[in-house]
Nucleic acid binder design. Structure first.
Lengths: 231, 231
DNA sequence: ATACATATTTAGGCTTACCTAATTATAATT
DNA sequence: AATTATAATTAGGTAAGCCTAAATATGTAT
């Protein structure tokens, strides 16, 4: 069998491009709950909308997504399973990069985007074992198991909390480096305990006490993106 | 800047195909010491010779190799540095796969062939550190440092040894799974001490004592592919 | 309901990295 | 030196994934 040095895998295999499309469709669907539009996909993938239309027609023909012309796309069960496999790999690699190699949580995304495409079931299961079967990545995003199942956690944005609520910070809704770096600079880490001391009516900013020590003022944009569970 | 989901990197970047060509040219040159022929490259890369001719013209134009029509190719210094970077990454990943994840030495090549193309200088240096700056991979192949330098070891095939020589087995010249698995089954491991007890004149097979315990008969094909250093 | 803006698709092209078949070099043999 | 075998190259294609520009839907505001 001939090799293919460009990683455009043949036959029943999923190509790099396919994997990325499916992953982004999954993530966009998670956010909106609705069908995913061509333009939304084009935006996150940084690919021309016309090219996206082309491509989704191809993967629709492969039954990885269902496609209604001019209306958007949805993953089929097969497409969803592939997407979840990629997400599982991405998040496991992120755990490894942070916990074992010493990267910071705002440095791992790009590298994990490459590692997530490495093909080897045995590798990913051994990696999972090596890491101690983590349930979440360094940003608090849940890691699906080998069958694509999550341990569903009922977190909500801190912005949905009320005065006097005591919560645990378990994830971020926004993954931009600038936000992650803001949190690092502010010394706010996953697992921290937050007590809502007051909410400013005018701008909806939160005064919180962190781990019973530091008091901090968090803007609306910040509290909307901190995912917490009530304690 | 637009992304490229197919990993055909643009501009000054090296594409996957380029990296593989450069790596194989390096390895073939190491073996033969001479210019690398189109057909030899076609053979190891499992790519049609006509395609190879095409491709080497492209990377010659980029000054990664020097190419003399119908005579073969050689790496330029720049090409050599890229090849060594890929080899460094490949071997570091192999160490990780075997030492940290528990793979066997005959199971890691394919996976490392994928991992070697992940692009991140910081990743590879942290991996190197994490592994304790290993000097060789699980097959005894030396790992170049970040600048492409080797700690040159003067090993030779066991077949070049004489009766009564006491040597240490430090690498393999042949990397096929069947050979690696043969060694595993025969319980011959890197680091073992071998004493040449006798050499059969007729078929050049070796009678050796391993670690002062087991006595084994090794065929000419085997002893030619065991790399050793005199003790 | 019509007009306008925005989103989507169609049509036609391009590049990378491959292929086969045909041609031309090079090397080996008589 | 001429023949033959082998290796290398040229010529002409292909598929995957992208692009731009033009055409067509869809949704919104009047």
């Amino acid at each position: 069998m001939k090799k293919n040095l460009t990683f455009v895998k043949t036959g029943t295999m999923t190509s790099l491009a396919e994997e990325n499309y499916l992953k982004e469709i999954y993530k966009l669907h998670e956010k909106s709950g609705a069908m995913v539009s061509t333009s939304a996909l084009a935006e996150t993938l940084q690919i021309n909308a016309a090219s996206v239309t082309d491509f989704i027609k191809k993967i629709a023909a492969k039954k990885l997504i269902s496609y209604e012309k001019s209306k958007g796309v949805m993953l089929t069960e097969r497409g969803r399973q592939i997407a979840l496999t990629i997400i599982r790999k991405h998040r496991l690699w992120e755990v490894w990069l942070v916990n074992n190699l010493g990267f910071k949580w705002d440095e791992v995304h790009e590298i994990a985007e490459q590692l997530e495409h490495v093909v080897s079931d045995e590798l990913i299961e051994l990696l999972d074992k090596h890491l101690g079967h983590p349930k979440a990545d360094p940003h608090g995003d849940l890691i699906p198991d080998a069958k694509g199942r999550f341990v569903k956690m009922s977190s909500k944005p801190l912005s949905d909390c009320e005065k006097k609520d005591k919560v645990k910070f378990i994830g971020v809704a926004e993954h931009s480096n600038s936000f992650l770096q803001y949190l690092t600079r502010s010394d706010i880490k996953l697992g921290d305990e937050l007590l809502v001391e007051s909410i400013e009516e005018f701008d909806k900013s939160f005064q919180v006490k962190i781990n019973g020590k530091d008091r901090k003022l968090l803007s609306r944009d910040v509290v909307k993106n901190l995912l917490v569970v009530l304690l």
